[in-house]
Simulated assay, not measured.
Amino acid sequence: MNPHMGDGEEIAEARLGTGPAAFIRPQQILIEESAADAVERWGWTLSVEDGFRLVRLASGVDPCELAAELRAAGHRASPNHIMVGQPLYWGGPSSRPFPAPFVAPPPDGPASGVTVAVLDTGIAEHPWWRDSAWYAERPPGADEFPAGGTPPAGQVGHGTFVAGLVLRRAPGVRLRVGKVLDARGVTDEATLLRALARLRVDPPDVLNLSLGGHTVDDRPSPLLADAVAALSRTVVVACAGNTASGRPMWPAALPGVIAVAALDATGERAAPFTAFGPWVDACARGEWLASSYLAVGEFAGYARWSGTSFATALVTGAIADAARETRDARAAATRVLDPSRNPEIPSLGVHVPGLAR
């Protein structure tokens, strides 16, 4: 393993045998409660969460090998995989954001009655939603960028950009924002599992996850699969990744999750950075989009940015907008992804119309 440091927490590149590489928290493993006795001799519990334990392993114990052994014995276990907000290790969603001139706000209109949860880097104050009830109700710690702060680096602004795209595509929806990614756009599976557990208390209609990561065996984490499946009333939409490959990205490739690829600025061809494959369900324009951003440095509150993260926000918005009529987000998703309504592109899924240029 090759350790790297990120915001005070270790990150390591790992693999299972000669398999593909992925990033994990070194010496950490996630297990279901029933597996606690099976790992007791290998480490100690760091935290007991809703449905899982985070365990710190003793030096020399390989979390990838131990997770594989536990799964073979019938337990649900996983290394604590790293996930990022593009995902593209480590350089931002296909490119950095660029300053943009004024972008017209989403049109005024009645509340749609549809709730969209956005788990991302948080959200910054912006004229588009400064006076919105949902913004006033944002949870503690959801602020992405403090007033008077220094110019951002890494992924700061990512959540604000995603939120603006959802609102432009689905005016009137109620956003519920959660902060799971740090300033560099990095999180881990344990953090995402905690956030998903909190959503089960009051499930949103649609959940936008413009984040993801690889696993050491290219199979889904069983704990993450369980957490997503538990949101049975919620349509989950996730980015396929900016890897320009067919390697599955999680949680996008999970059954029941809508995996979104990106089209280029024409809205007709695959963007050069997008992931692709039979596990991808939908695609939308993801190149050179304009949306809300931070008012800092050379930015006046607006930016242009590219990535599957942002194509995902447009698909989320399209489903949320359709749900205002059906009052059923799952039925709305079926309609939006109906190939008889919208054309299908091989390896990229159904083409979902985005925004006017």
Rank of each mutant, 00 (worst) to 15 (best):
M1D: 01
E9T: 15
E9S: 14
E10L: 13
I11M: 01
I11Q: 02
A14K: 06
G17A: 07
T18F: 05
P20C: 03
A22S: 15
I24D: 09
R25Q: 06
P26T: 08
E32S: 13
E32L: 03
A36R: 06
D37T: 03
V39H: 00
W42D: 07
W42A: 15
G43Y: 01
V48R: 14
E49V: 00
E49T: 01
F52Q: 04
F52L: 11
L54S: 13
R56N: 12
L57D: 07
V61T: 13
D62P: 05
D62T: 09
L66M: 13
L66P: 02
A77E: 06
H81E: 12
I82D: 05
V84M: 15
Q86P: 07
G92K: 02
R96N: 06
P99H: 07
P99E: 02
P99D: 07
V103K: 01
A104G: 08
P105E: 03
G109N: 03
A111L: 12
A111Y: 08
A111V: 04
V116H: 09
A117F: 08
V118M: 11
D120L: 04
T121Q: 02
H126F: 02
R130K: 09
A136I: 03
R138F: 03
G141T: 03
D143A: 14
F145E: 08
G149P: 07
G149R: 07
G149M: 12
V156F: 00
G157I: 03
G157Q: 04
T160C: 08
V162H: 03
V166D: 00
R168Y: 01
R169Q: 15
R169T: 11
A170H: 00
P171C: 04
V177E: 11
K179R: 15
L181R: 06
D188Q: 07
L192F: 08
L193D: 00
A195R: 01
A197Q: 12
A197S: 14
V201S: 09
D205I: 05
V206M: 08
G213V: 06
V216R: 00
V216M: 05
R219N: 12
P220S: 13
S221N: 11
S221P: 12
D226R: 12
A229Q: 06
L231K: 10
R233S: 15
V235L: 10
V237I: 10
C239I: 01
G241E: 00
G241N: 04
S245E: 05
S245Q: 10
P248F: 09
P248R: 02
W250Q: 08
P251L: 10
A252Y: 00
A253K: 02
L254T: 04
L254I: 11
G256D: 04
V257H: 07
A259C: 11
V260P: 01
A261Q: 03
A262G: 08
T266V: 05
P272K: 02
P278T: 06
P278V: 08
W279M: 13
A282N: 09
E287N: 13
W288F: 10
A290C: 05
F299A: 07
F299V: 09
Y302H: 09
R304Q: 08
S306E: 03
G307S: 09
G307Q: 06
S309Y: 06
S309F: 00
F310M: 11
F310G: 05
L314E: 05
V315C: 04
V315M: 08
A320N: 14
D321I: 02
D328I: 06
L337F: 00
P339Q: 13
R341G: 15
P343A: 13
L348G: 10
L348A: 12
V350A: 03
A356H: 07
R357Q: 11
R357M: 09
